[in-house]
């Protein structure tokens, strides 16, 4: 299981891009941290989520 924004999800083995594709996140509006480190955008397609990973997707909304 992978903990994403506090929820345990069965997405181990998927790349970050594959995970995002099944969500409603807008790829141009997010930043992702995984196990305390930023995930570079260029690595969304190559990084594979592992069992026990802790991930936060920060999804920005408009207004400022």
């Amino acid at each position: 299981m992978v903990k994403i924004n506090g929820q345990e999800l069965p997405v181990a083995g998927k790349t970050i891009s594959e995970y995002l594709a099944q969500t409603t996140y807008h790829p141009q509006r997010i930043a992702i941290e995984r196990n305390g480190e930023i995930v570079p955008k260029a690595e969304y397609e190559s990084i594979v989520l592992e069992d026990g990973d802790s991930v936060e997707v920060v999804s920005f909304v408009g207004g400022g």
């Binding site: 920060v58 920005f60 408009g62 400022g64």
Partner: peptide, 14 residues
């Protein structure tokens, strides 16, 4: 980061 557009916020953050 004090932009208003979400894309700009995410761009600067990344």
């Amino acid at each position: 980061e004090a932009f208003d557009q979400p894309e700009a916020k995410a761009m600067l953050t990344n």
